[in-house]
Design a protein around this nucleic acid. Structure first.
Length: 462
RNA sequence: UCCCCAGUAGCUCAGUCGGCAGAGCAAGUGGCUGUUAACCACUGGGUCCGCGGUUCAAGUCCGUGCUGGGGAGCCA
């Protein structure tokens, strides 16, 4: 029940809501403005009550001052942390330390008082606890900042590729491909009809790449940015069953072009967050990862290392020791090997390329040595693999042989093979895990904390 | 899926050798203060994760299940 029924409507006209972000951008006092938001904390005394109101528009909260002379003053003590309020008053210079301006209230209306059971308290909570209340955690400073950054970075992705002349491609979420060489698939059925709906098994997409290739071979440069699904029973801090992936694909491009794009795009995105999310990012540099600012600065200011898989194996054999698993040419590098390269040997992003063909998918272009393919992985400190891509095999006969070797049916990929028949060209692309980018730029170590409502094995409550 | 660790008040955690269930913070009440995650005092608050076992006696030991975390594999 509202504490104070001061009307939202004044002189027959609804007063416009202003955000905290807008208010804090003012350089001078301003009369009669209105804020709506949620109470972070309240301090009540005999003469004054202070209410911190946050509306999610920015990290900062606004200090509302309520004077005891106001007729509804005695009700202020009932306002609790979490309550939703509408405050109308004057933005005035603050006489005390801590803030330049504050809102001197004329009226305070409570939409709803949050009872004592409100789980978020005026104290630090663990990430594990906040995951269990995923519907409320965006009301904390950390997760508010996190998801404003996520939003800003999504726009930055579109901004970058648009600027570079790429067309955005909406690739299918539902797919009939029974294997794309990228992990376990979620099956899709239509109620009781089972597989009858499409006439063949259907799945949720694990990658938009094969579709993106078709459009790169028509529009020249395309990118996808959408949800991706992996049913792998994978329980680590870097994996989710549903995540977002950015996949650029370029015609008339080789592996070097792909590596150039990978490096340039990452530098752009990191610069973007440093420039456009300064305040939110500062929370992470102060409280989440003290080294974050330095890590980001190195990414944008230094060239990435680029070495072949073979050179990486040699380096690891020479410089590395005490690995749990041995380093063997022809086998995939283990996590500890990739991290050693990015964190110890180079201390910055490193691109490995030209991998043994037997550990990579059929669509990667066979090199002239016939032992390796034109693949690349971009490894970054702490996260490991951020991007993975390749130049694609554009020669129909070789592509068909590679499919046979990996027991894939030419029949079900006939359209993919046909793209190499009429006007085939060299082309290349890669995929970037959007959540891993967010982990990189915020220093957050668990992927569950950069996704609004994360899906992992056994977890789909929210 | 495998290995390791954890589960005790709303939250974070202590609990010794198996012997009466604890602290800080939060909350409630009162006081005080141009306050800054305010401060001071008092009060309330427990299925010790579930099930089974050992024992005179289990938060504590054993078995098992569930949940969470870290790592591995797989990958983005």
């Amino acid at each position: 029940m509202p504490l104070n029924l001061w009307p939202l409507w004044s002189k027959g006209k609804k007063m416009k809501r202003m955000t905290v972000q807008e208010m804090l951008s003012f350089k001078e006092e301003r009369m009669e403005i209105r804020i709506m938001g949620w109470v972070r904390t309240r301090r009540t005394g005999r003469e004054l009550t202070f209410i911190e109101v946050n509306d999610g528009s920015c990290l900062a909260s606004l200090q509302v001052v309520v004077e005891a002379s106001l007729p509804f003053y005695e009700e202020m003590s009932r306002i609790t942390t979490g309550s939703s309020v509408c405050v109308t008053g004057d933005l005035v210079s603050s006489p005390a330390e801590g803030q330049a301006f504050e809102l001197k209230a004329r009226d305070v209306q409570v939409y709803q008082r949050a009872p004592e059971s409100y789980p978020l308290q005026k104290k630090r909570h663990s990430d594990e606890f906040l995951r269990s209340i995923a519907h409320l955690r965006p009301r904390t400073n950390k997760y508010g900042a996190m998801f404003r950054i996520r939003s800003e970075m999504a726009f930055a992705v579109h901004h970058y590729y648009r600027k570079k002349g790429f067309s955005l491609l909406h690739t299918p979420i539902l797919t009939g491909s029974d294997c794309e060489g990228a992990g376990e698939l979620f099956s899709v059925t239509a109620g009781e009809k089972g597989e009858a709906f499409f006439g063949k098994p259907a799945h949720l997409t694990v990658s938009g790449q094969l579709s993106a290739e078709m459009f790169a071979l028509a529009l020249g440069r395309v990118y996808t940015f959408g949800p991706t699904f992996r049913a792998e029973n994978s329980n680590t801090s870097r994996h989710a069953a549903e995540f977002w992936m950015v996949e650029p694909e370029m015609a008339f491009a080789d592996l070097d072009d792909a590596m150039d794009l990978a490096e340039d795009s990452l530098k752009f995105l990191v610069s973007w967050v440093m420039e456009h999310c300064r305040e939110d990012l500062s929370l992470f540099t102060r409280f989440v990862d003290k080294d974050l600012a330095g890590v980001l600065e190195r990414i944008i200011s230094e060239d990435f290392a680029r070495i072949t898989y073979t050179e990486a194996v040699d380096l690891l054999l020479k410089k590395g020791s005490g690995f749990e698993f041995p380093v063997v040419w022809g086998e995939d590098l283990k996590s500890e090997h990739e991290r050693f390269l990015a964190e110890n040997i180079f201390s910055k992003p490193v691109i490995l390329y030209n991998y043994p063909k037997n550990i990579k998918p059929f669509y990667m272009r066979l090199n002239d040595d016939e032992k390796t393919v034109a693949a690349m992985d971009l490894l970054v400190p702490r996260i490991g693999e951020l991007m993975g891509g390749s130049q694609r095999e554009e020669r129909e006969d070789i592509l068909a042989m590679r499919m046979d070797a990996q027991n894939l049916s030419r029949e079900s990929y006939h359209w993919y093979l046909e793209s190499r028949r009429w006007g085939s060209v060299p082309h290349a692309g890669f995929g970037m895990g959007f959540e891993r980018l967010l982990m990189l730029v915020t220093g957050v170590s668990n992927i569950r904390d950069v996704i609004p409502f994360p899906r992992t094995p056994g977890n789909i409550e929210f």
